[in-house]
Design a binder for these strands. Structure first.
Lengths: 204, 204
DNA sequence: GCATATTGTCACCACCTGGTGACAATATGC
DNA sequence: GCATATTGTCACCAGGTGGTGACAATATGC
């Protein structure tokens, strides 16, 4: 084996993601990651000061979350933010959350971390919390303050919407039907998007 | 030790709930439950055919879920269903979900199982799924079919509402603030209830 | 060149997990 | 009474976990 600390650190970071994606967060541990990386586990303690440090570094370098561009809609090119602002607010909200659904559902690793969050708080989930918070702030900053007559109500409504998406997307990994809706078929998700859009347009 | 199979089985069932409530589902195992019950673990295999069988029996005898009365509102006595039906549908929905929030938040064991569901499917979570399904059907049966112009939309909206409640209530065990809302204070939950009521009244 | 620090390998530890076979203690059927 | 079945105790197994100390192999500084 070559003696190259940087490369071994990289291998461990990559292996972390591989184990997380392949076996789930419950299998994430020094033994499995070291085995996956083809490296001795003692190096995790030397280079990252333990599993927590490794996970923290992994969180800092990976991107498991959609950027604002993805949420505004891929069809908008050029100055997205400005074009987006031309929509009425309810339409903006509907679009953002429709895109949010697609963004989260297409990221198995993100779904895994969302499930992890429900059970435990660690370096990775904590990191995701701040990312999410920043993204929320960015989105709110796009809104003309004059349009928000009741910010507290708006925060409540958007909290409910994002929460429901997190739940349904994560839950879809273990169940087929929720409230009569098929979470394993695109038709089911279209039904959810339609309801979401209806809520946005009628309530904001 | 007395030789009484029935009592031993009871002790194991009780111990299952105790371990689940005190240490969380990740600690639920033959060793911890047997120790909690003060009984040898081999009896779990003999009497319940393993941990799965024990959990299944535990699921069948415990009640971790609100009944329909609790969701309709405790203030209604006598013929609840009939009194409840006198409300307009949007008001019915708002009330049910407000009560649902209180019902779930007040049951730590239920919150633990909701978190468990996000990670794994087992005898207990499967049992809870059917309970929940039945409850949903009961609630829908209270609605005059003529009032539902778009049942698919209604299913989507109520799915989003219940999903968001499950998520936020479970998530509150690990984080304080979600989307600027304090999940550890009653004021935060009042804000959520207000948003939920707003959605119900404006969209149904 | 050589001493020193870094990188990697390996064996080992204590502890916990699910699971089982052997055996003692008690109850039951006749 | 006695043979049999049931209940409970205990010791043990293989395999997994996180964590560490000892040592060899290589690179670096002078």
């Amino acid at each position: 084996m070559k003696r190259d600390r940087q490369e071994t650190e990289q291998r461990l970071l990559i292996a972390t993601g591989q184990v997380l994606a392949r076996d789930g967060f419950r299998k994430v541990g020094v033994n499995s990651i070291a085995k996956q990386a083809g490296v001795d586990k003692v190096l995790i303690y030397r280079y990252f000061d333990g599993l927590d440090g490794l996970v923290k570094r992994y969180a800092a370098q990976g991107d498991f979350w959609p950027g604002i561009d993805e949420l505004l809609g891929e069809e908008l090119i050029g100055n997205k933010a400005q074009a987006f602002r031309s929509y009425p607010l309810p339409e903006q909200v509907a679009r953002v959350f429709e895109n949010y659904i697609d963004a989260i559902r297409s990221r198995p690793l993100t779904l895994e971390i969302l499930a992890w969050e429900m059970v435990e708080r660690n370096e990775l989930t904590a990191h995701l919390e701040t990312i999410r918070e920043n993204l929320g702030q960015q989105l709110i900053s796009l809104i003309d303050p004059g349009e928000l007559s009741d910010p507290e109500l708006f925060a409540g409504v958007t909290a409910l919407m994002s929460a429901s998406i997190h739940y349904l997307a994560t839950r879809a990994r273990h169940i087929r039907i929720y409230n009569g809706i098929n979470l394993r078929e695109e038709a089911g998700w279209d039904q959810i998007k339609r309801a979401l859009r209806h809520l946005a347009l009628s309530s904001i």
